[in-house]
Amino acid sequence: MLTVRSVAHRYGGRRVLVAPDLSLAAGEHCALVGPSGSGKSTLLNILAGILPPSAGDVALQGEPLYTAPARDDRWRARRIGVVPQRLHLLASLSARDNIRLAQYLAGTHADIREVDRLLAALGVEDRASARPGELSAGEQQRVAIARAIVNRPQVLLADEPTSSLDDANAQKAIDLLFEAARMAGALLVVATHDGRVRARFDRAVELLEPAGERARPLRSAHPERAA
């Protein structure tokens, strides 16, 4: 479904990512792991379609993300949902409108009942009218997840979703992402350096600092599904 071939990225002349070739399937849960500076977020941005790699190709269901025919922003947004590390909910909009914004900008059917169903499924239906500043960190994360899956994307990406959470909440956040990916029927790829959650993924891809050695697929929590 999502394939990565010979992807590398340079920034200001410095090599910041050398990614292994990957082939990820629908419904799979994949963790991108590695130390700080190994390029986890960079690879996630490349998979999100918002950072053209310096080299290599990424394809979604055989359709290249970056090479011709060029994909427009709506095409990308309808197929790939992203939960950024800092969530970045629009402070001027309510929780419900933050989610509706994703529908509007991606050009999908703006059905408010679908948004409310999603908020209910993620346990924040009573906070639908609240602005992000009035929500707890956990509620904000749920709204950001709802925003990422409202267009039923094929791929759900999350960047360090547990970085500022305690053990119990980190596990809840991962549960939530698994549930969201299940609801959307999406491939889930999470960039994390959090060892507490790593074991819960079907597959973990370890990225090394790109001093020279190429990063490699590390191991699988479920060897039968490992690449």
Partner: peptide, 12 residues
């Protein structure tokens, strides 16, 4: 950040 997120969400 709002503009970046709108671009991420599909705004051309």
């Amino acid at each position: 950040y709002d503009i970046a997120i709108m671009r991420l969400l599909g705004a051309s």
